[in-house]
Design a binder for these strands. Structure first.
Lengths: 123, 123
DNA sequence: CGTCGTAGGTGCAACATACAGATAGCGGGT
DNA sequence: ACCCGCTATCTGTATGTTGCACCTACGACG
């Protein structure tokens, strides 16, 4: 039970993190913590740092990004991530998929509106 | 490893099945197998029957739908599902959440288009 | 009788995500 | 010197959602 985060709510697409990170990296090289903060500008707050770093490493292994340790002048060392050509391609594909999702969801909504009308007469 | 079903592609929202079934049921009482076939009209092909029936039973337990066995004249017995008021409410909420998802995805796309422009100059 | 179409169902493994820490460097305050 | 808070990365584990592979059962048709 444990009242989980929120009674099974419908949420963002599966595997949404990857396209988000790729987009941010397409806008410019960055390191993990920076990306973590910028995620909120994409409409996601409360990103799990663990998941984010794991995702970055997975993308590194998949060759979508290239990483390099950057000795910091102050504070702990940071790993900067740079998008590869393959990553850019992947981003393009993902953007297409997301557009497809939007189309599907629009169809859903149109259909929902139709039946909702029947319940709430024109005011 | 097992060659993963499909290179981790980005897909539809989490828990999308529920809102879909609720919408179809809002259009009229139906039984599982019927819903299974109608799912394709919502843009989802290849729905897993197991998952669908499980989802229906879960919604029944949650009070979103009411089910009744219908003795069939020919073929196996079928269980018909009817939307409850609570289910209708839930559908409304879910539709709102999905609209929110679309808004988020639109923002994503706008931002993607901006950087894509830089790579493909105006032709 | 075998097989097809209808109808509902179980069990399990893989995967994605959430939660909860651990570690570690640096700077500021006391 | 010590702790605290901020930056920064990472691990371990529980939980939830999905997909895959099956199984049962009824009726009709050849």
């Amino acid at each position: 039970m444990t009242a989980r985060r929120e009674e099974n709510a419908v949420g963002l697409p599966r595997n949404y993190l990857r396209p988000c990170l790729l987009l941010l990296l397409a806008e410019g090289t960055a390191h993990g913590y920076e990306l973590l903060e910028q995620m909120s500008t994409l409409g996601i707050d409360r990103v799990d740092p663990g998941g984010l770093y794991r995702c970055l490493r997975a993308m590194d292994e998949d060759g979508l990004v290239r990483s390099a340790w950057e000795p910091s002048t102050s504070g702990p060392a940071r790993r900067t991530y740079e998008l590869t050509d393959e990553g850019r391609q992947w981003l393009h594909v993902a953007a297409g998929s997301l557009a497809e999702v939007v189309r599907t969801l629009d169809r859903y909504h149109a259909r929902y509106a139709e039946i909702a009308e029947r319940h709430e007469p024109v005011r």
